[in-house]
Design a protein around this nucleic acid. Structure first.
Length: 631
RNA sequence: GGGCCCGUAGCUCAGCCAGGACAGAGCGCCGGCCUGCGGAGCCGGUGGUCCGGGGUUCAAAUCCCCGCGGGCCCGCCA
């Protein structure tokens, strides 16, 4: 990994000065606790004996970045040479415009598939977490020098598109109103049709049910009727039109007919389904562009079926299939082993049931189609790696996918397919359901965020729509990225729209403040040539405590980026940026920069502001947030 | 019934994977700072059986085992 990294330099310097193996230093060097120096070597971790440590405490000062070291129990507390270290750090920042970003020595070709939401309703807040994570992954991988391609899998084969197609058939037209985004309108048609279909089906079952079963169905029906009542209020026209026709048709029969004829490629159905889905995709693209999560390649699941690629996979699967519960299925028991699981990244106790190959009516199944899709992703981009950003609820299906690939002999693909799993976004108490139209859409969250930012802007005498839009989007993105992916996110308006300390607006404001200092400096005739400032600055400036703390945090940036890159976890970076902003604001409040009388100190202060400016800017961009020079 | 993930201050979260010194932030609450380069700020205070119980270790929020609570999955749905 190639990059300018002050901490890396420090580790090398310490290792050679103290005569310690570099691995030992890497494993045991930590940021010191408050009051115990700057860095600490934890001796047992490094495998260093007491005698060695005593010797090291003396020789370590040969490293010019270190001023002294003190042995304290199992710790060797290291006090840095502030002049040297501060200069090195600022030199790195000035010398490399992308300070903090490293270059992968062996860049890879990587496909990142994300969002891939069902194309029959607007993107909701859960999909937003996916979009934020997926676009973050693509950005950080790309910035480190990898070739990245982003893809969206349009799930147009299957029951749900048939449901919405039937809805439009019943409506009698496929025209969409101009006053609503297409995906929002389609979402309503879908929710109405789906709810009415389920009501019909439950009523049928209720007619013959008895006892407990009957009671359970009745409860389910009550819930459905409540949803229907709500939908009839939200979308009265759609609701009336569809429910009037509902009496005369059998939903299940109609839906199944559409499904079959779509898979078969029957032209009229293809035209109907495609025209609806295309409109919905238009809505997705608009939202994703707004959210800073655009996707390059859009793949139709149906194309895989019609081109025969899925059939080919099924032929291959048949050769390794056995009969399971009366259906042709692939049983993974034969190849399953702890070693294989480790190679494919499958949890060791996960029970993996056999994978059914196709329905008895001959239509295909999702996971099987996904095998064909995975092969396509590897093939078309000549990818070394494919990352699927998919919610944790699909862990099992994704494990089956990798095992199936392996069983078919696609070893390389199976080993290099990564299920990037994240937990869902839940609403306080309410269960989100797109089938019932019970969702918080990303569009409305962004609208509300923008509105709230505008209120704050107006308090400060601005009413820039553009700034409000960008800040609103930033706030939502940041909120979704600042929680570790493996942890569930509880959605709440008050948290998303909290613009105080732990937020994107706070970071953006801090960044704008650094820009403000530069503007002011130019106004009073200070030349902002960073390399020149580096020459004239007083290297002892970091004797001052707050300046020093800031230097150390800036020095930590490449390490933080690297950790975020390796784990693909944006929260590491988000938390770091907040800490840096806090530290900067504390210092800013304490010391003036422009009016500093001593030129050499002023130069150092300006460089410190510049360093913070670069770090926040780079960090935000990786998180998919555009820094604003002026708010 | 089995599996995956989560459980840290009143609330929202970091720290856990690679065990180390008194467990950290923000919000909230209480009290200060407002003629200064941008106050979405700054300074101080308040607040914790790290879900519980065992075990491993010189050392456990972190690793292992047994429980408890919550979310999700176990379909010829996607």
């Amino acid at each position: 990994m190639m990059c300018l990294n002050p901490i890396d330099r420090l580790r090398g310097c310490i290792a050679s000065a103290a005569g310690l193996p570099i691995n030992a230093v890497v494993a045991s060097l930590e940021v010191a606790k408050e009051g115990f120096g700057d860095y600490t070597l934890v001796l047992p971790k490094a495998g260093i004996s007491k005698a060695q440590a005593e010797e090291a405490a003396k020789t370590i000062t040969r490293c010019s970045l270190v001023s002294r070291a003190q042995l304290s129990g199992i710790y060797l507390n290291i006090y840095l040479n502030r002049e040297e270290f501060a200069y090195t750090t600022l030199e790195n920042v000035v010398g490399y415009p992308d300070y903090g970003i490293c270059r992968e020595e062996k860049p890879k070709r990587i496909v990142v598939e994300y969002v891939s939401a069902n194309p029959i309703h607007p993107l909701h807040i859960g999909a937003a977490r996916n979009a934020a994570l997926g676009s973050f992954i693509a950005k950080i991988l790309k910035s480190f020098g990898n070739e990245v391609q982003t893809r969206f899998y349009i799930n147009d084969v299957g029951r749900q598109t048939a449901v919405v197609a039937l809805g439009f058939k019943l409506l009698g037209k496929v025209e969409l109103p101009d006053n609503m985004k297409p995906d929002h309108f389609i979402g309503l048609v879908y929710a109405v049709t789906s709810t009415l279909a389920d009501i019909q089906s439950i009523k049928k079952r209720l007619a013959t049910a008895t006892g407990e079963e009957s009671k359970r169905l009745q409860e389910e029906l009550d819930q459905l009727l409540a949803d229907a009542a709500r939908l009839s209020k939200i979308a009265p026209d759609i609701f009336t039109a569809i429910s009037e026709k509902a009496r005369d048709i059998d939903f299940e029969e109609e839906i199944s007919k559409i499904m079959k004829s779509y898979e078969a490629g029957e032209p009229e159905t293809v035209k109907l389904v495609r025209s609806i889905v295309e409109k919905c995709i238009e809505g997705f693209k608009e939202t994703l562009r707004r959210f800073g999560a655009e996707i390059e390649v859009w793949d139709w699941e149906s194309d895989l079926v019609w081109s025969g690629e899925v059939a080919k996979v099924i032929e291959m699967l048949k050769k390794v299939a056995t009969v399971h519960k009366g259906a042709l299925a692939v049983d993974f028991k034969a190849i399953d082993s702890p070693e294989l699981r480790a190679r494919l990244g499958i949890p060791k106790n996960l029970e993996v049931p056999p994978l059914v190959i196709m329905r008895s009516d001959g239509t295909t199944l999702y996971t099987v189609r996904d095998i064909a899709y995975t092969l396509k992703k590897f093939r078309e981009f000549n990818a070394d790696r494919v990352i699927n950003v998919i919610a944790a609820e699909q862990t099992l299906a994704q494990a089956q996918l990798r095992l199936a690939l392996y069983m078919l002999g696609f070893t390389r693909e199976a080993e290099n397919l990564l299920h990037y799993s994240y937990e869902m976004v839940s609403m306080e108490g309410v269960k989100m359901s797109s089938r019932r139209g019970r969702i918080v859409t990303l569009d409305e969250v962004l609208d509300e965020a923008k509105r709230r930012v505008l209120v704050e802007l107006e308090k400060r005498g601005s009413q820039s729509q553009e700034v409000a839009e960008k800040m609103g989007v930033a706030a939502v993105r940041f909120y979704l990225l600042s929680v570790t992916p493996s942890r569930p996110v509880k959605f709440s308006w008050s948290l998303v729209l909290d613009f105080e300390k732990n937020s994107a607006p706070y970071l953006l404001y801090t960044y704008a403040r650094t820009e403000g200092i530069f503007r002011k400096a130019r106004e009073v005739g200070i030349e902002l040539s960073w390399s020149k400032l580096l020459e004239i600055m007083d290297r002892r400036f970091a004797e001052h405590e707050r300046r020093w703390r800031l230097v150390k945090l800036v020095a930590q940036f490449p390490e933080t980026m690297l950790a975020s890159y390796r784990s693909l976890d944006p929260s590491t970076l988000a938390v770091y940026l907040l800490k840096l902003a806090d530290e900067f604001n504390s210092w800013y409040d304490e010391e003036p920069v422009i009016t500093e009388p001593k030129e050499s100190i002023r130069a150092a202060k300006l460089l410190l502001v510049y360093a913070v400016n670069r770090v926040i800017s780079t960090g935000l961009q990786i998180l998919g947030i555009e820094p604003l020079p002026q708010i």
